[in-house]
Design a protein around this nucleic acid. Structure first.
Lengths: 208, 208
DNA sequence: CTTCGAAAATGACATATGTCATTTACAAAA
DNA sequence: TTTTGTAAATGACATATGTCATTTTCGAAG
């Protein structure tokens, strides 16, 4: 028997979820919390196997609540429900160790998702997983040609973003240190940056 | 009733999987293929809801076979089995639109994973999902207390990673420039880094 | 061959940076 | 009160960095 706690600040939603899950023979809804705060309070005494939680809530939101709960030593698998496909939320959810992230709309698959999560697998809604490859492959939001960045300069940028000094870059590229210095200078001018640290920041924020 | 096709070049494994799945009342193993090539052939006539496939196989491997099958118009949800945690494979699997990626070892959860996949959710083995945040944004968890990083130093790190100079940081924090300089120096020593650019890189790779 | 132009290199310079030893300020503990 | 520990600041120093003007190299175009 899988014990579940439901967390949603909309009573209608949490009620519906309870009905859906209680209808399953091997799932039992042990508690329903109407806020993140309440969930944090209830979690230790209820000790559910799975927490089904809305990610958007008034007051303490889902990720915050889940984080607190997990910090408090709960071994529950957290399954987030959301109406939105928000990269931010996905990232946060993954970071705090959530075991699932599915879309409210397809609540028909909720029971099987709960079971999978309870058995230690991670579950993501189909639409969510479609986004993963893009996130994985770090798409560039930056077009080097727009700024007249040459291929060699692009290489230098990469090295700077690896934390290498001009001297080290020079060795890697078989160039003089002064040359690299000039190239960095040229890059900074083109990108309107001040120093190599800003260049590294730019790289991680806009390029990678 | 969920129809399944099993693909594994090890007859013992595919046999075991068949037994496990056939034991479920709502799952039916319609076909067993012993190679990627065979799977590609069988898929159109079997038209399974779910394909449970080993990712490492002689000849055509799992991702290649799955790609072919999906290209041929199959609407099956592909659930990969693997003994390894290989970033390469995860990436490929996600890219071609696989709906699951779980570890052979925990085959106990296979039925619930199959159900979840069949209902349109994506499933990842627990160990796999632990890797996702890193893959998603190259961030490992970093515990400041491990390195005796003080809260104020943490703030400085953030400013450095915004590309601010020591002077600018000093103004923001109402400190002397020299003080900030010392703090940066202290941080670099603690984290075993050489300069602020490396610190910025560290921030984007390990923190945030 | 000569000319041309881009890439590479050099040298000089000002500034930012990182390290270190030392001092000051200040609050908590004795 | 004095003592003590820590954060903050200072000053000195070597080095790295970024800018700029200039020169060299070298291959392609004439």
């Amino acid at each position: 028997m899988i014990s579940v706690m439901i967390v949603d600040d909309d009573p209608f939603v949490s009620g519906s979820l309870k009905i859906i899950l209680d209808n399953e023979p091997d799932i039992e809804v042990k508690a329903v919390a109407n806020s993140g705060e309440e969930a944090v309070k209830l979690a230790p005494e209820v000790a559910p196997d799975v927490i089904v939680m809305d990610i958007r809530m008034e007051g303490m939101n889902g990720t915050e609540a889940a984080q607190k709960i997990l910090e408090n030593g709960s071994k529950a698998a957290v399954l987030f429900l959301t109406t939105f496909l928000d990269d931010e939320y996905i990232n946060k959810a993954l970071k705090i160790g959530a075991m699932g992230y599915i879309i409210k709309q397809d609540c028909g698959s909720l029971p099987s998702s709960v079971r999978a999560v309870a058995s230690g697998q991670a579950v993501f809604g189909g639409k969510v997983v479609e986004k993963l490859p893009d996130l994985l492959n770090r798409k560039e939001r930056f077009d080097p040609s727009e700024f007249d960045i040459t291929p060699k300069e692009l290489e230098v940028i990469g090295f700077v973003a690896d934390g290498l000094s001009n001297k080290e870059i020079a060795e890697k590229m078989f160039l003089g240190e002064g040359t690299v210095r000039n190239m960095v200078s040229s890059i900074l001018t083109k990108l309107d940056l001040r120093d190599r640290t800003q260049l590294a920041c730019f790289y991680y924020q806009k390029m990678v």
